[in-house]
Write a protein that binds this DNA or RNA. Structure first.
Length: 104
DNA sequence: AGAATGACGTCTG
DNA sequence: ACAGACGCCATTC
C-alpha cells in the first residue's frame, strides 16, 4: 500500500474522530493527516466518498467557518440541516469557529 | 507534457 | 468585514 492510500486512510480516521457537535476545517484535517497545505486534496477525497460511508463529512467546513457549497445548492441545505441536528447553528452563513472548532 | 479543475487557504486593498 | 488575486495539492482531460 502506497503513501497515498495511507494518507487517505489517516484522513478518514481523523474525520471519524471529530466529536459530535464540533467541526474541523479542510486545512486542519490535511495537516492532521500529514499533508499540510493539501486542503483541496481533502475536498477531493470527500467529493469522491462512497455513499455508504459512515463518515461525519458534514462536520467539515472551510477555515472561515463557511460551508464549501453554494448557499442555494442541495448539498448546502443537507449539511446545514445535519449541523443544526447537532445543535450547531449558522450565523450569517458561517459557523462560529471560536466556539465550535475541534481542537484535538 | 501541459492546462484545467475543485467540498481550500492566506494575504491585500 | 469582504471580495479579488494568488498559491496549493492531487486528479483529470
Amino acid at each position: 500500500m502506497d503513501n497515498q492510500e495511507l494518507a487517505k486512510l489517516q484522513l478518514y480516521q481523523m474525520i471519524a474522530a471529530i466529536p459530535h457537535g464540533r467541526v474541523a476545517s479542510y486545512g486542519q484535517l490535511a495537516h492532521l493527516a500529514g499533508r499540510s497545505g493539501a486542503a483541496r486534496w481533502v475536498g477531493y477525497c470527500l467529493r469522491h466518498l462512497p455513499a455508504d460511508s459512515n463518515l461525519p463529512w458534514h462536520r467539515v467546513v472551510t477555515a472561515s467557518g463557511k460551508l464549501a457549497f453554494s448557499v442555494n445548492s442541495h448539498n448546502y441545505k443537507r449539511q446545514h440541516q445535519l449541523l443544526v441536528s447537532e445543535n450547531i447553528h449558522l450565523q450569517h452563513h458561517k459557523v462560529d469557529m471560536k466556539q465550535y472548532q475541534w481542537r484535538p
